[in-house]
Simulated scan of single mutants.
Amino acid sequence: MTSTSATHYRHHVFFCCNQREPGGRVCCNDAGASRLRDYAKQQVKKLGLAGKGRVRVNQAGCMERCEEGPCLVIYPEAVWYTYRSEADIDEIIRSHVQNGEPVTRLRLP
């Protein structure tokens, strides 16, 4: 694992929260990305994981994977996920962020 001094955060979680015009291509925000990003931020804080040297949850613009999404990516490992529910977010936080084990069933190729 990369040192926190080099990355500033042990894990940096980016949620694609892109919103496209209605009737166009699919976008992550249509699948609740902003709501689930907010939920993830709350959970990370509630679990005492947030802060410098620890975990940061951020919004990102389009990451060009909306058709596979909604999607998020966790750095420094560059592991991409899709998710559908708070339970999926809880599993990603518990397994990957807290225990270092990626969630195979939710990984994007």
Rank of each mutant, 00 (worst) to 15 (best):
D30H: 08
F15E: 10
V26M: 00
H12N: 07
F15P: 12
N29L: 09
C27L: 09
T4G: 07
A31N: 14
Y39C: 05
E21P: 09
A6R: 06
S3M: 00
N29A: 06
T7I: 00
S5G: 11
T7Q: 05
D38N: 14
A6V: 08
S5C: 01
R35P: 07
Q42V: 12
F15W: 01
D30I: 03
T4S: 08
C28H: 05
E21Y: 12
D38P: 03
G23E: 01
F14Q: 03
R10Y: 02
G23I: 10
M1P: 12
R20F: 01
E21L: 12
T4W: 05
R20W: 03
S5Y: 11
A40L: 05
R10E: 10
A33V: 04
G24M: 10
Q42A: 15
N29Q: 13
R10C: 01
Q43T: 11
H11E: 04
C28T: 04
C16S: 07
A33I: 08
S3C: 04
Q19G: 07
A31Y: 14
G32D: 02
R35G: 07
R25M: 14
G32L: 01
C17R: 07
R25Q: 14
R10S: 01
T7F: 04
D38A: 14
M1L: 13
A31P: 06
C28I: 08
C28Q: 04
P22G: 06
A31K: 15
N18R: 11
S5E: 14
G23Y: 02
C27K: 07
S3R: 11
K41Y: 09
V13C: 00
T2I: 13
S34P: 14
C27V: 10
S5K: 13
G23W: 05
C16R: 07
P22K: 12
Q42E: 14
C28N: 06
A31F: 15
N29M: 12
V26N: 04
A6T: 10
Q19I: 13
R20N: 02
A31I: 06
T2S: 03
P22R: 01
S5M: 11
Q43S: 13
R20D: 00
Q42T: 15
Q43F: 04
R35F: 10
A33R: 05
Y9T: 07
T4A: 06
R25Y: 13
Q43N: 01
H11W: 09
E21S: 13
N18A: 01
M1A: 11
L36Q: 06
V13K: 03
Q42D: 14
S3L: 09
D30L: 13
S3G: 04
C27T: 03
F15A: 09
N18H: 13
H12T: 04
H12R: 00
V13Q: 03
R35Y: 11
H11R: 14
H11D: 08
T4L: 01
H11F: 11
M1K: 10
E21T: 13
R20V: 05
R37K: 14
E21R: 12
H12M: 00
A33W: 11
Q19N: 09
V13S: 00
